[in-house]
Design a protein around this nucleic acid. Structure first.
Lengths: 110, 110
DNA sequence: TTTATTCATGGCAAAATGGCCATAAAAGAA
DNA sequence: TTCTTTTATGGCCATTTTGCCATGAATAAA
């Protein structure tokens, strides 16, 4: 088998972890769908509906993971996606969810 | 904007969370690469190198998420992938890692 | 039957995560 | 200058996650 080093799996898990929070998913979705391709912390705070400090920390996680980039303009900070592959990422998640549903239906019919 | 419900993001985050652990990644990789397409808990325990009870719990997480299925044969339990899309999933992670590296290089050269 | 093997689970402790509040820092407005 | 707005961060607490040990349950072997 062609298994990798422990670090190999750790850095990849770190990226997946950054994507594994509902508030962060919502923020990514909002940024992706907004016309400008970027959003300020204040707007994201309103959309997510948690404390501004919490949003700031979520955004820091996504930035640190390599998913978002930021740009300061005056008093505001705008965040934008650094990658275009998230569709594929969530496409796989959708498939997993469908499989899970299948398994549950099979279990009920047992 | 076409944002989804809170639950929409929660179930998807749950799947991502299941994939967001180095030991679980290693196990998925091992199962994917092994010839039979399935592995027993005992072999996975040896590969990962943590307690057998810990491996069992990791496998339960992946099963619950819809990523793995299991099959009992005698005293052993074999786990196999339920989905074929993980390549795409990790492909996106690779792209994120490359972006992160680019950002770090830019930061050093500043 | 007794013994050994394989896996799952209860219990517990350590660490990580996520949330809020308060507040600092930076920029612009008055 | 002083006030306001926007963002980031320290502090703190509650919850979740992760790991191990011990042990139970199930099956196979002796």
């Amino acid at each position: 088998m062609n298994l990798k080093t422990k670090e190999h799996y750790e850095v990849r898990a770190q990226v997946a972890k950054a994507l594994a929070h509902p508030a962060r998913l919502l923020m990514l979705d909002a940024i992706q769908q907004c016309g400008d391709g970027e959003m300020c912390v204040c707007d994201l705070t309103e959309i997510v509906g948690v404390d501004q400090s919490t949003v700031s920390r979520h955004l820091a996680v996504l930035k640190q993971a390599g998913v978002l980039a930021d740009r300061k303009e005056g008093v505001m900070t705008f965040f934008r996606l650094r990658v275009r592959c998230l569709e594929g990422f969530w496409g796989c998640v959708e498939i997993v969810l469908k499989e899970k549903l299948k398994a549950q239906q099979k279990a009920v019919g047992r």
